[in-house]
């Protein structure tokens, strides 16, 4: 399944949910500020149930230094 993660095209065979995608990307879900799929924020509680589909555009964001 081809999806887009943070603007990059990404082919995944394993990731059916956000939780699985984060796992595949080796990102700890607790260390992510928020996740958005097709411009909608997905609640943390939904990470393991929200099903990703072909063509989804996912944004994984965090806090960085800023003024």
């Amino acid at each position: 399944m081809r999806i887009k993660v943070n603007g990059e095209s990404f082919e995944t065979t394993r990731a059916g949910t956000i939780f699985e995608l984060l796992h595949e990307l080796k990102i700890e879900s607790a260390r992510v500020a928020a996740v958005e799929v097709n411009l909608s924020i997905i609640k943390r509680a939904g990470f393991s149930t929200f099903k990703l589909k072909e063509g989804d555009e996912i944004e994984i964001v965090n806090f960085v230094g800023g003024g």
């Binding site: 993660v5 943070n6 603007g7 990059e8 990404f10 990307l25 080796k26 990102i27 260390r31 992510v32 500020a33 928020a34 944004e59 994984i60 964001v61 965090n62 806090f63 960085v64 230094g65 800023g66 003024g67």
Partner: peptide
């Protein structure tokens, strides 16, 4: 302290986090 919201770098991930 102020912080900014940015994409996580999925290619070159640093394990360190500002928080």
């Amino acid at each position: 302290v102020t912080v900014a919201v940015r994409r996580v770098n999925i290619i070159d991930r640093k394990s360190e986090n500002l928080l």
